[in-house]
């Protein structure tokens, strides 16, 4: 689905590339988590995947970046809109402001895709139900709490049903139940729906439970790549500033005290941790 070869990207006027020789292939239907310290290039990867770098941010690039059959940096944002959805890191900026209600806000992107009225209505209702926004449908998207606004931002992209979903810290303001719900939705879309999901997320516990794979960024490069459970247990994450779940930290600390043999692999989920300590 995604094929990136030796891709570099420079923001305008920068000598240092924000993406520095990225090689990455992601198969269709994979749920791929992205972690890394602040400033590592996670958001820039999201912009590159969705064409916002270079089409919105300008700057220069080299290498290859394909999504499906599309050559992303050589396509227009208009061509990409229906195929690749991006949920921005800052949901406050995602609300278009062009419409009066949450329902209309979600319909807005679909209208731009040129869908038929009936289809738009169907998708809007489906999405409102999916992400628990029915009670807020008639409210103004600006008269909402931070977390409610973030839900609207996610919903307006989900409604477009892109083949590739790119989400940049989409749960940062969601309550824990809302976070879990979003992970479940993404898991379903990836598993049965064949949607490819690229998710930047600091909440490692949920990545461990749901993602197929985790890639780790540092200074514009991919430094670790593998199954979610393997990467999240890797102690290099500590040095990189990504941190680890408290399950993993507690397990490592107990191993140091020699209550549990070193050979036992570190847990990253609650279930694994329970087994580890029993």
């Amino acid at each position: 689905m995604i094929r990136i070869k030796d891709f570099c990207y420079w923001y305008p006027g920068q000598d240092q590339p924000a993406l520095d020789g990225i090689d990455l292939e992601i198969p269709e239907g994979q749920f791929c988590g992205v972690v890394g310290p602040n400033g590592a290039g996670k958001s820039t990867l999201c912009y590159a995947l969705s064409g916002f770098a270079p089409h919105f941010f300008h700057g220069t690039w080299e290498g290859e970046l394909q999504v499906g059959k599309r050559d992303v940096p050589r396509s227009t944002l208009g061509e990409l809109a229906g195929e690749i959805g991006l949920v921005f890191q800052n949901s406050f900026n995602q609300i278009s402001g062009a419409r009066f209600t949450v329902r209309e806000e979600i319909a807005f992107g679909l209208e731009n895709l040129g869908l038929k009225r009936k289809e738009i209505e169907r998708r809007v209702e489906e999405t409102l139900a999916l992400i628990d926004l029915e009670a807020l449908a008639e409210r103004s998207p600006f008269a909402l709490s931070g977390g409610q606004q973030q839900r609207v931002a996610i919903a307006s992209i989900l409604a477009m049903q892109p083949k590739l979903l790119v989400l940049d810290e989409p749960t940062s303001q969601l309550d824990p139940r809302g976070t879990q719900e979003v992970f479940k939705i993404l898991d379903k879309l990836a598993g049965r729906g064949g949607t490819t999901v690229v998710l930047v997320e600091h909440k490692l516990e949920w990545l461990a439970a749901f993602a197929d794979r985790v890639i780790t960024f540092s200074q514009g490069r991919i430094v670790l790549d593998g199954s979610a459970k393997k990467i999240l247990a890797d102690e290099k994450l500590l040095k990189l500033g990504v941190g680890q779940t408290q399950f993993t930290q507690a397990a490592a600390a107990v191993q140091k005290k020699k209550f549990i043999p070193r050979s036992r692999p570190l847990p990253v989920t609650l279930k694994q941790a329970q087994k580890f300590f029993e």
Partner: peptide, 9 residues
Amino acid sequence: EPSIGQDAA
């Protein structure tokens, strides 16, 4: 919400 968007450090 002071910690949103922050890495572990």
